[in-house]
């Protein structure tokens, strides 16, 4: 079940969308990059960690800023077109 719990601004949306795209790009890159390409592999691993942290920080920051409700088994989702935030359970 999805419940709309709020909105973010277009700028805030752009920030998470960019992180979302980067995270997807990194995970698809991970399918083709092997450890024998050491320099690039290390760069990928580091980037995945940093991007994941930034991604989580965004949700934490927004949740605090907009006082979004949450549940134990639920997670938040964003509609990139409308900037709407949903609680999905």
């Amino acid at each position: 079940m999805k419940t709309k719990i709020g909105y973010v601004t277009a700028e805030e949306r752009d920030e998470i969308q960019s992180l979302f795209e980067r995270r997807n790009g990194l995970s698809e890159l991970a399918k083709i990059l092997t450890p024998d390409n050491d320099v690039l592999y290390q760069k990928l691993v580091k980037d995945m960690g940093e991007t994941g942290t930034k991604f989580q920080n965004w949700w934490d920051r927004m949740a605090a800023q907009y006082q979004w409700q949450g549940t134990e088994n639920g997670h938040w989702e964003i509609n990139f077109e409308t900037c709407e935030i949903f609680l999905s359970e």
């Binding site: 960019s18 795209e21 980067r22 790009g25 083709i32 760069k43």
Partner: peptide, 19 residues
């Protein structure tokens, strides 16, 4: 496509975030 992904990432190209 593999080469594009690798090179965009390696070069820190701004398109890696949106392609």
């Amino acid at each position: 496509c593999d080469y594009l992904k690798l090179r965009m990432f390696e070069l820190n190209h701004h398109w890696f975030n949106s392609y």
